[in-house]
Simulated assay, not measured.
Amino acid sequence: MSTQRPHSVSVAGVIIDDAGRALLIQRRDNGHWEPPGGVLEAGETIPEALEREVLEETGIKIAHPATLTGIYKNMNALIIAMVFRCEALGGSATTGAETKAVRWATRDEVSQLADEAYAVRVLDAMDAANPPAIRAHDGVKLI
């Protein structure tokens, strides 16, 4: 058995508006722009975690089921992230306890605002017609 610490599992939701823009959050803890999401809690299903994280960080309630658009592994931090394209059911984009700002961003703006490892997640979700992406990164750059 490995003595390494176990992997963490997280979810993120990418909401696309009628203009084709994706909703990004700016995190309070590090100022980075990324899709809303976070780590699954014990006893929580993947859809429950996705709904909770998106609502907590954006004020938007999402529909089920969401479409899986990618699975991403941070090779340094040992985090597996599942990203879903989500449909908004209600609410309005607002900040929360973990969110410094929210912003609807075009494809070009996503690439300018977010580190490559997070921008690609949003861009993959914007291209949801493709099969889910499977990618690895170091926390900032794709590997």
Rank of each mutant, 00 (worst) to 15 (best):
A105D: 00
A19I: 02
L89N: 12
A114M: 07
V83N: 10
R121E: 14
L23D: 00
V11W: 02
W104Y: 09
Q26P: 04
G20F: 04
V14E: 04
V9E: 11
E116F: 08
R121L: 10
A129Y: 12
G38K: 04
A125L: 04
I16V: 15
S92Q: 14
L50Q: 02
A22G: 11
V11L: 00
A93C: 09
M75K: 14
E98A: 13
I46A: 10
T45F: 05
I79R: 14
A105L: 01
G37L: 01
V9I: 13
E34R: 13
N130K: 15
M82Q: 13
I143L: 14
T94I: 10
G96V: 11
V140L: 07
P131I: 03
M82D: 07
R103L: 15
P6W: 02
A42F: 11
A22E: 00
A101N: 13
G139S: 07
D127P: 00
D108W: 04
E116A: 13
L24K: 00
L113I: 06
Q4K: 09
A66S: 15
L50E: 04
A114R: 06
P131Q: 09
T95H: 03
H7Q: 03
V120W: 02
A77F: 11
I16P: 03
A77M: 14
T94H: 10
R21G: 01
D17L: 05
L40F: 01
A119D: 01
M1K: 07
T94F: 03
S92D: 09
A81S: 13
G90K: 01
A117N: 11
T69R: 05
I71H: 08
N30G: 06
V110W: 03
A119R: 00
V54C: 08
A81R: 13
S92N: 12
R21E: 05
V120M: 07
A97N: 09
I134L: 12
K141S: 13
M82Y: 11
G70N: 08
I46K: 10
N74D: 15
R103H: 13
D17P: 03
V39M: 10
A128G: 07
T45Y: 06
A63F: 07
A101Y: 13
E51C: 11
V11Y: 01
A114Y: 06
G96H: 11
E98C: 03
R5W: 02
G139A: 04
H7C: 01
E48W: 05
H137K: 02
L89C: 13
T99G: 10
L113A: 04
A105Y: 08
G96I: 12
L142S: 03
A63Q: 14
A66C: 12
V122G: 06
D108Q: 11
V14I: 15
E56T: 07
M82N: 08
E87P: 04
S10N: 08
T95K: 12
D124Q: 08
D124A: 14
L68R: 11
N130R: 15
R27A: 11
G13L: 02
T69E: 06
H7G: 05
H32K: 13
N130F: 04
G31D: 04
I46N: 03
N74M: 06
T106Q: 08
L23Y: 00
D124I: 00
E53A: 03
K73V: 14
Q112K: 15
